[in-house]
Structure formats: structure tokens, C-alpha cells
Design a protein around this nucleic acid. Sequence first.
DNA 1: GAGTGTATTGCAATCGATTGCATAAAGGGT
DNA 2: ACCCTTTATGCAATCGATTGCAATACACTC
Lengths: 354, 354
Amino acid sequence: MVHKTGTGRTTKQAFSSRPTIKDVAAKCGVHPSTVSRALSPAMSHLVAPDVAKRIRAAAAALGYQVNVAAAGLRTGRSGLIGVLAPDIADPGFPPILSGVTETLGAEGYATIVVDVGTDCSREQEIVDRLIARGVDGLVLATVTLNDPVVGHCLAASIPVVLVNRTDAGRRLSAVVTDDEAGMRLAVEHLVGLGHIRIGHIAGPQNVSTGALRRAGFKAAAARAGLSAHSIMIEISRAYTREEGRLAALRLLDRKLAPTAIVAANDLLALGIYDALSERGLNCPADVSVVGHNDMPYVDMLSPPLTTVRIAQRKMGNQAARLLLDQIADPTAHRKRLVLEPSLIVRTSTVPPKR
Amino acid sequence: MVHKTGTGRTTKQAFSSRPTIKDVAAKCGVHPSTVSRALSPAMSHLVAPDVAKRIRAAAAALGYQVNVAAAGLRTGRSGLIGVLAPDIADPGFPPILSGVTETLGAEGYATIVVDVGTDCSREQEIVDRLIARGVDGLVLATVTLNDPVVGHCLAASIPVVLVNRTDAGRRLSAVVTDDEAGMRLAVEHLVGLGHIRIGHIAGPQNVSTGALRRAGFKAAAARAGLSAHSIMIEISRAYTREEGRLAALRLLDRKLAPTAIVAANDLLALGIYDALSERGLNCPADVSVVGHNDMPYVDMLSPPLTTVRIAQRKMGNQAARLLLDQIADPTAHRKRLVLEPSLIVRTSTVPPKR
DNA sequence: GAGTGTATTGCAATCGATTGCATAAAGGGT
DNA sequence: ACCCTTTATGCAATCGATTGCAATACACTC
């Protein structure tokens, strides 16, 4: 007769499995709901002070921590925020991320960071997965100008804040820097040094920073009195050092090469340095270079890079705050914060030769 | 009398709230459990092929996605992994993180990355919070040699893998590089160039990389025939550029300054560059410098940095794999993977002057 | 001492999914 | 025809916490 009842199953939960609210309740001889109330700041006024104290003591003794996932199931809030990053390995991004997690962490939220890479279809899927995980909000640092993911998020009516990059329709809240102002600073600096043939290596034109900085470059050049044929623009396909190198080569190989180049991004500027040494040219003697972002350690390059500094950490902080506001009041209208950039002059820019 | 009852509460869930398994079940005229089975690869063989197809179609039509948190409550698995990072802004870390998330993401896990900063007490608390969130495992890149958090994790009997840094007792699985071998490569390279007075800027001695690299430096020097008083060591208090600068100054200000310095970390090497220019010295002419980690863009420094390359991404991949194995079989014994470093020779190292 | 509050606490439903067990229907063998 | 498998589906408990409502106890007023 095989009457062996399930073995090992009876262990129930002995082991070192985490204590639950029931364990605390049992230890105190009260109902779980009382424990829940005692431990919730918002509800603790409903339980007798001495009982509450006893419960808190028991909870501490047992090492009890509320199961956030279980609580979230009931309350509908997971305390999770999804962050989509274009490329974590880009040194320009971590400061933004720091800012986001700092502000969010202070409010008890944890962040799930996903490195999207280039693949745009993946982006949609990633957002869906995060929503399935029950995130309370999303921070997107990846959107392209006409990104389908924007409509997708709107349809899901989930709080979203864009950071660094914005969408064409401006349908979502965003924290960005003034891309046009940044380029104006760069161009005015170069014109002030005496440059009259200036090149620009633009970023991908389907992301706002690429398009806006290019427009800003053109506007600033015109404003500074440079004619249309004294500026030249090459568009890179990605914000990478290699793409920057390729675009810079195209610029340098023109009949009338520029005496200064403004990059839409520091990584592109690194590529310019590569291209220059490849062509046997010297920066800044032959060509001045201006970057954008002031990512960490560009002051250690040879030569130290003149670049447009943007307040990345602050950008992250403010994006997080905007998101928190939006979670607190989902009906609130979308907002747009624009941070002012500043120019950090180092030694990659000098007056043109003779 | 304030008898206003909660308004707006009755909304129930109309809105655009996500569909649940019940909605799918209703639409197909089957029981939720059937839907659950149809949608779970492991259980779908239990439901009739045509019904399963109908269910999948309905789920797709409704845009249904399983609520991972709810499922996790029942199954006890959250699909979440916690990662503790020493400092996200350190360019050396993102590649490790990429590796971890890549491997974990492929298996359906999402990662919560927390930047711990310096504060050690915070670390304990962060781990507790992550456990409360129900993470299925932890990747720690932050442990110190005698970190109380190790015992804490052991007590919680939660799968943990250490990465890059290890604990003194070797009580947890870990993926690290051969710190001693790396220093041997550096020292042998310098000795081969003819250096006979070599300095070392060690990292904090309470983390394994700091202690092991220092030990490795000493061993390699002895092995290469350098006497104890021809090597000199300064210990930095943190892996930062500023601490590197300070330690380098101490080294340079000794009566008999070294002709070459090996840093335990590239960030420290940056500080050496700073200190050198501060003292009016030139690298490599006056002092050769070797870094450690080969973090991104150190090839663009002036001069390009000779450094010990470690396979960060691979380290991340393997740590993730180890963690997955440990989750699959919690009784499995702890493992230790040691990756071999290699030396990348650039132009920051040359033979000593005359 | 009845009436009216007010302060505490318990009860039970609920969130969304999973899964062991029971049941029902269909197929097969003799 | 009957019994025994298989196969497919439904039922209901469960995971851990929260919260509206009900119930009890105690205090206070007149």
C-alpha cells in the first residue's frame, strides 16, 4: 500500500524563508490586518499605541519586511520605474541615470534600467515587458523624433517622461537641454576666434538632439554672419566614435576643408581626433574641435576638449521629479523643462592659422 | 458630520487598464486556468491545440500580458535580479553591467541596479530592500573583504554572485580577474624596459582588488629581482582620480622617486597624469605609467595609457550565468571563476631616462 | 442607565495568476 | 456493453498584503 503522504512538502516554510505578516501577527496575537495598519505610517493612527509598539518590536525581531510585490498587487502600485537607456556604456549617460535613481530612490522607487541598443523594434517590446512588470512609470532616454513608442505609451496611459531627447509632436513631458543655445555658444566661440569655415558633424537626424543641434548650428552661423557656403555639415549615423571618424574624414577631404569642427556629441569629437591624426593633421593647430556634453574625462584628452556642458545629473533629477508628479496626479498636463548649457573652453580651440 | 464617502472609487477598472487573464478567459468562454495553461509553454501541452490557438489569438487581440508580479506571488519567483554597483559613473563598470543584463535579459530576468556609493551601512539596507522586493538573486560588485553583507546574504539563503571583487572568506560564488597575474604583466613589462625603481598606487586595502593587486605587485617585483627598497607603495583611499592624484604626489615627492608607476585602476592612473603635470613632469619621458582595467577611451589620453585589460563584459556574462545556475539549483556549491588579464601596451611606458 | 460617540480590532474580499485535484468526455481493448 | 486509459477542462485554494465594513469595548453626557 502506497500510502506515503507527500514528503518534504509538509515543511511548509520552515527553512529560512522570509517571515510574512501572518508570522508577525501570530507572534503578537493579533490579526494580520492590525499588523498591516501598525506598520503603515498612514494607517498606524488606527491602532493602539502600545499594540503598535509591540508589533513594531516583533516585526523587527523577526526581521519582517513587507513583500512589496504582494502589497503592490493589492494597491496597484509596484514601486518600480522603468528606464530605457540608449547605451549604458556611453559615459554621457551614467550621470543622467544617477540623477534619476537618486531622486526616485529617495521616494522609495526602484528602477529597472534597460539598455535598448539600436534596435527600434526591441524598444516597443521592452516597454511592453516593463508594463507587464507593472512599472508605475517610465523614463525614456531613447526616443526618436517620430517614435511609435510615444503613441504606445499614450495609449497605455502610463506616466512617462522623456529625457535628453524629445519627440516631434511634443506629446509627452520631457527634460532636455537647449540644443540650439548650445550650438550658438560653440559657433560664437569659434567665430570669435576668427574662424570663417566651420564644419558640423551632426548626429542622426531622426533624434531630436541630432536635428536640433544641426538646426542650431545653421541658425547660429547665419546669425554670426557666416554665409551658407562657408559652413559644411556631415551627418553621422550614430553617436559613436567610429561614425564620428568617418564623418570627419568626409569633412576633411572636401576641397575647402573647415578650420574648425563642431561635433553634436563628445563621442563624435573623439572620432574627429582619430580622423585628424589619420590625416596627419593636428588639433588645434590645423583644426579646432568643439564637442558637446562634457562627458567625464574629456578634459584629459590630448588636447583637452572644448565642449558644451549640459547638466546631466540635474536633468535626471528633474525628469524623476516630473515623473513623480505625474504619478501623483496622472491628469496633470505634460510639462517641458529646458536646461541651459554652458561652454567649457579648453585647448582644442584656437584661432585659425594665420 | 463628515460623512463624505470616497468618491471616484467606483471607477472599478474601466479606463484603459490592462486586460487580465479573466478578460481573455471570458472572451474565449473558458476558465482562467485554461488560459494560464495555454499561455505557459511548459503547460500548453495540456490544452487542446485548437483551444490553445483560440486563446493565443484572443490574448494577442486584447493585448494581454501576464502580470508578472501577480504570477510571481504565486510561483515565488519575481524574475527580478538586484545588482549593486560601486559607482555607475565609473566608466569601468558599464561593460560589466551590460554583460550581466544581456545574459539575464535573455532568460527573461530584469535587473534592478543600485548605485551604492561609499556608504557601507547603506549597502546592508539596500540588500534588505531588494530582498523585500522579492529579487530572485543578487549580483554584488561592491563587497569589501570582510563585508557583513556576505553573512547577511548567506543567512537569507538567497542566490548571490560576486563580481570583480571577492570576499575574504570566499564564501560566495564569484567571477574575478587574476589580480596578481595582472600586476605581474605590468611589472614584467616595466622591468623589461629597464625600470628598477617602480611605484605602485594601491586601491583601498579593504577590497580584494586593492589588496590582491598590491600583493601581486610585491610578488612580481620580488620575482623580477627587485629588492624591497626599490619598490614603493602608496595606498589610495578610493578608486578615484583625485585620490590617485594625491597618492601620486606622495610618491613623486619621495627622496628617490620612481621612474615608473603602476596604478591599481585606470581612474587612479588619471590622477597620476594630473600629479605629473602638477609637478611639471612628463609622461612617459620622466615617469612611465601603467593602468588597470582598460576602461573605454584611455587610448585617447595623452599619452595613450598602457594598461591591464580585463574582460569586463565577459565577467558580467559569466556572473549572470553563475547566478542563473544557482537559482536553478540552490544547493549547488559555490564556484569561483578567474579570468586572465592581458597587457595593452600603448605609449605611456618607455625605458627610463638614460 | 440609556444613548451616543469614539477608539480598536477582527473579518473577509480583493488584487491576478498558478496549479493540484476532481471531473467529464472520448477512445480502446476484450 | 463494460472498464480502463487518456485527454481536456473546470474548481478552488493559494501566494502576501491591504482596506471597507462590521463588531466590540469603553467612555462620557445628561
